[in-house]
Design a protein around this nucleic acid. Structure first.
Length: 479
RNA sequence: GCCCCCAUCGUUUAGCGGUUAGGACACCGGCCCUUCAAGCCGGCAGCAGGGGUUCGAAUCCCCUUGGGGGCACCA
C-alpha cells in the first residue's frame, strides 16, 4: 500500500480554534497510527485577511498541543507559479474559461436570486464566448476571472470515510471561480492543486467542507489527478449547538493554555470528542491514542464542547503526573498570574503548591487558591463566617486557639496538632469549633488544605498575627 | 429558499438483530473527615415520532420531525 500522506491546512485569518485543533489532532493521530506523513500547509491566498501573527499563533498552538508535522509549513502564497500553470492547463483543455462578468452584475444576480428565494447559480453568461469575443474583451482591457466549467448533467459521488456515500447533482454546483481578477487563486482550486502536488492520500477535514468536495473532485478529474480518500469530521458545537466560535467564550487553543489547562489533557479531551476507542476508556495518553486511533471510528455526529468534562480531565492529569512535575508546571504558570517564583524559597513554594494539587482542576484555579500565602490583608468570607458563628463564637474559638498554641514553641505539624487536640479534649469541645475559626483567620475562607500543614507553611509569626487580627475583627462584628 | 450531513441519558460515548440499554462528566444523596478537594458507595436520567422488514429491532429500510453545515473574485 502506498504511504499515507495527510495534511492540516489552516488559513491564517485568526487564532487556531478548538475545532481546527481537533482536525489537526485527528490528522496527526492518523498519520502517527499508520506511520504516514503529516504535511502542514498555510492557506493564505486571501491577502485581505491573512496575517503573519495568525500564522505564528497557529504554529505556537500546535506546538503547545504537541502536534508536530513532518513537512512544511508550506505557504500557498509562495506557490502561485504552480497554480497558474495548472490553471493554464484547464484553460487549454476547456475545463475552465475566462469570465468577464463584473462584480456588480454578479451582485445584482445574487440579490435577485435571494429576492426570489432561489439558489444563486452563475448563469453561464461567459461560458460559451467565442475566441474572438474573448479576444475583443481582453483587448478592450476588461478584467476577467477564470471559472471552472461544471458538467451540465450527471452527479458527483464520493464515499466518505466517516459519512457514507455523498452525492451532488452537478447542475446545482454552478461554474465557480478558480482565479480571481487580481490573479490570486481561490480556495477550491489551490487546495486541489496542492493536495495533488503533495500527493495527499487522505483529506481529513471538518464537515463544513463537504459541500466543496464535489467541486474539488471535478477539478481532480479535469487535472487528471488521482482522487484522495475524504474523511469529513463532524463539527464541534457550543452549548447552544451552533458551530463553536468566540461567541461561546474561550475558543482558541492558546486561551486554554492561558486558563491553566494542561496540553496533554486538552489533547486527550479533544481526541475523545467525536472519537472513542470503542470501549469505556477515557484517560488515554498520547501513545495510547496513537495505537488505538482509527479514522473509521470517528463519529458521524456533531459534538458539544463540554468545558466541565475538560476541567475534570485536566484535574485527573494534574493529579496523575509525578508531584515534582506538577509543581514545576505550576511554577512555570505563576508569572502569568503575577507571581514570581524566584522571589520565594523553592522548597516552601513546592510545599504550598503540593497541598493544592488535588484541590484544583486547572493551574489558574490552583494558583488562585494560594492567594493567602502572598498577602496578609485579604477579606474574610463573610457568609461563611456567619455560618460557622451559628455553631459558636468565632472570636471565642480564636482565643481558645491562641491559648492552645501559646505553649507551642516550634510550629511543627505534630506539635500543633497535639497541642490543639489536647486542648479541645481536655475541655470537651469539638475540634471543629476552633479549627474552622482558625482556618477563616488564616486563609480568609472555609476551604483549605489541612490546617496544620497550612500553619506550618505560614509560620508562627504570620499565624499568630492573623489570629490576632481576626479576633479583633470578629469581636467587632459580634461573631 | 435550495443542496448536503446527522439523530442512544443534560453532555460525551458503548452498542453494530435477541442486553435488566453499559461507562464517563455534570447533578443529587451517603461514607470518610478539622474544612475543601480527592477517593469509595448509591441515585436521577436516554434509544425523537410514525410506518415497514423480521419470530425478534436502539441496531436494517422509508417518511416525518428536529439539529447542524454549505450555498463568495472567504477558507
Amino acid at each position: 500500500m502506498e504511504k499515507v500522506r495527510v495534511r492540516f491546512a489552516p488559513s491564517p485569518t485568526g487564532y487556531l480554534h478548538i475545532g481546527g485543533a481537533r482536525t489537526a489532532l485527528f490528522n496527526w493521530l492518523f498519520a502517527r497510527h499508520v506511520g504516514g506523513v503529516l504535511v502542514l500547509r498555510i492557506e493564505d491566498t486571501d491577502v485581505e485577511r491573512s496575517t503573519q501573527e495568525a500564522t505564528q499563533q497557529i504554529l505556537d498552538s500546535m506546538k503547545w498541543l504537541g502536534l508536530s508535522w513532518d513537512e512544511g509549513p508550506f505557504y500557498q502564497s509562495q506557490r502561485y507559479d504552480l497554480y497558474k500553470r495548472r490553471a493554464q492547463e484547464l484553460l487549454e483543455s476547456g475545463a475552465a474559461y475566462k469570465c468577464f462578468c463584473t462584480k456588480e452584475r454578479l451582485e445584482a444576480m445574487r440579490e435577485k436570486a435571494a429576492r426570489e428565494k432561489k439558489d444563486f447559480i452563475y448563469d453561464g453568461t461567459c461560458r460559451n464566448l467565442t475566441p474572438d469575443e474573448v479576444k475583443a474583451k481582453e483587448s478592450a482591457g476588461e478584467s476577467y476571472v477564470l471559472r471552472f466549467r461544471i458538467p451540465a448533467a450527471g452527479e458527483t459521488v464520493f464515499r466518505d470515510a466517516i459519512a457514507k456515500d455523498v452525492r451532488f447533482e452537478n447542475a446545482l454546483l454552478g461554474d465557480f471561480v478558480i482565479m480571481r481578477a487580481d490573479g490570486h487563486p481561490t480556495y477550491n482550486f489551490c487546495c486541489v492543486v496542492d493536495d495533488a502536488d503533495m500527493k495527499i492520500t487522505h483529506v481529513v477535514r471538518a464537515a463544513d467542507h463537504i459541500s466543496n468536495t464535489p467541486r474539488q473532485i471535478l477539478i481532480y478529474q479535469a487535472l487528471r489527478e488521482p482522487i484522495p480518500q475524504f474523511a469529513h469530521v463532524p463539527l464541534i458545537l457550543g452549548p447552544d449547538k451552533s458551530k463553536l466560535s468566540k461567541r461561546h467564550g474561550a475558543a482558541s487553543v492558546m486561551e486554554y493554555a492561558a486558563d491553566g489547562f494542561l496540553p496533554e489533557a486538552v489533547f486527550n479531551y479533544l481526541a475523545l470528542l467525536g472519537w472513542s476507542p470503542g470501549n469505556d476508556e477515557e484517560i488515554l495518553p498520547k501513545e495510547q491514542l496513537i495505537s488505538r486511533f482509527d479514522l473509521y471510528g470517528i463519529n458521524h455526529v456533531n459534538a458539544v464542547f463540554d468545558i466541565a468534562k475538560l476541567r475534570w480531565m485536566n484535574g485527573m492529569y494534574l493529579r496523575a503526573m509525578p508531584k515534582e512535575e506538577a509543581i514545576q508546571r505550576v511554577i512555570e504558570y505563576m508569572p502569568s498570574k503575577g507571581i514570581h517564583p524566584a522571589q520565594y524559597d523553592a522548597v516552601w513554594l513546592a510545599g504550598i503548591i503540593a497541598l493544592e494539587i488535588e484541590r484544583a482542576e486547572t493551574l489558574s484555579e490552583l494558583v488562585a487558591h494560594l492567594h493567602y500565602y502572598f498577602r496578609d490583608d485579604f477579606p474574610y468570607d463573610e457568609e461563611g463566617a456567619r455560618k460557622i458563628a451559628k455553631k459558636g463564637s468565632i472570636a471565642d474559638g480564636l482565643q481558645m486557639a491562641r491559648e492552645a498554641l501559646s505553649g507551642v514553641a516550634e510550629f511543627s505539624i505534630e506539635a500543633m496538632e497535639s497541642a490543639m487536640r489536647q486542648y479541645t479534649e481536655e475541655r470537651n469541645i469539638g475540634f471543629g469549633k476552633i479549627a474552622q475559626p482558625v482556618r477563616l483567620a488564616l486563609t480568609g475562607g472555609l476551604a483549605s488544605p489541612g490546617l496544620f500543614e497550612v500553619m506550618h507553611l505560614l509560620g508562627k509569626e504570620k499565624c499568630m498575627a492573623r489570629i490576632e487580627r481576626a479576633i479583633l475583627f470578629f469581636k467587632e462584628k459580634n461573631l
